[in-house]
Amino acid sequence: MASKRSYGDGCGIARALDLVGERWGLLVVRELVLGPKRFTGLHAGLPGVSPNVLAQRLRELEAAGVLRRRTLGPPAGARVYELTEWGRELEPLLIGLGRWGGRSPEPTADPYRSADSLMLWLCSRFVPAPGGMPGAAAGEGLVAVFGVRSGDDRFAVRVGGGRLTVERGVPERPDATLAGDLGTLTDVLKGRRPIAEAAQSGELAVGGDVTALRRLVDLLITSRPATAQAAVLA
């Protein structure tokens, strides 16, 4: 096996890229930011990577101390991968990178490949107002817990105090729930398709406080940042 390449530069940025900059490396981290996953779940979220390359990236990230393997307790007993404390420090960097990349002047028609990436998009769009105080882009007083399901992926989305957080799992008492395939959820959460129309077609299952869901979508739409090109022209 060829030795891993290095920039040979003492700069912290270069060192970080030595550790997580290999192709697929940061996307592996993306898939683990919201909670542990088994190998099959990781591969499902990264369909463009071969199992051999994914296994290699996991070994490299484990050796670097970014992630670790763990066996879940009974009755599951499954082996999962999870980020270490140090690895979890990459979360705000990934969200910031997603926010920056989302402002690209070149639009993309590429679909989301994993539900985790869509959930992290929520985090990147829900930007606190200046000074950390709740504002229009930070929630306008919305306080709610949402349960989101896409296939086998389940998430708890919590909004309150000008913050939005997401974690893998099922919330105990959600105010509202929505479930559908990844394409439908993407279209609904990005405001491309009305909640009622998707629900009426049977492609989206909705429960609980639909008004709170609409408020969340409205906030995500109105907080859309200007593209980099527009910012330059301004």
Rank of each mutant, 00 (worst) to 15 (best):
E91C: 06
F39L: 15
V232W: 14
R68A: 14
K37G: 08
P134E: 15
T184G: 01
G132V: 06
M1W: 09
P171Q: 11
R79D: 10
G207K: 04
E197H: 07
K190E: 15
L42I: 07
L189V: 06
L61P: 06
E31P: 00
V210R: 01
L46Y: 08
G96F: 04
M1C: 14
D175M: 10
A78F: 09
L97Y: 04
L182W: 05
D18V: 05
D18R: 07
T211L: 13
E62K: 06
F126D: 02
D110K: 08
T165I: 10
L42Y: 02
E106N: 11
A115T: 06
W100P: 08
G35T: 05
G98Q: 15
F126V: 00
E60T: 12
W86H: 14
P47R: 13
A44D: 09
D18Q: 08
G202M: 01
P105A: 05
Y81A: 14
V170H: 13
A2P: 14
R5D: 14
A14N: 07
L34M: 02
P75D: 06
G180D: 01
L32I: 00
L26C: 04
I13Y: 14
M1I: 05
V232D: 00
W24F: 15
G8N: 07
E203L: 05
R99C: 00
D18S: 07
